[in-house]
Amino acid sequence: MEKGKKKPLVRVCVGTNCAFHGGQLILEKLDSEPLIKDKIDIEAVKCFDKACKDGKNSPVVEIDGKKYLRASIEKVSEIIITKLKKKGE
């Protein structure tokens, strides 16, 4: 990747509620997927306060500042791949 080009930042909530409802496995899948893992920055984070707290939105994943509620690996990968395509990856 060229210098200066920022990688998409994917932050996955692993607060216990989000982790239990799939956050943990989203994180591990992204982190072990060879086609994606080096092209993004991945962070495991504690709860995004309001977005996570009532529990109905779990798991919550934030990509470049935008939060996705009740996220799934399909949805998250699709967003990441669209972003990478836009940047010509």
Partner: peptide, 14 residues
């Protein structure tokens, strides 16, 4: 066990 944490709203990361 994790379901008990979730139902009790115990967040292990906190």
């Amino acid at each position: 066990m994790a379901a008990i944490f979730v139902a009790m709203k115990i967040d292990l990361t906190e």
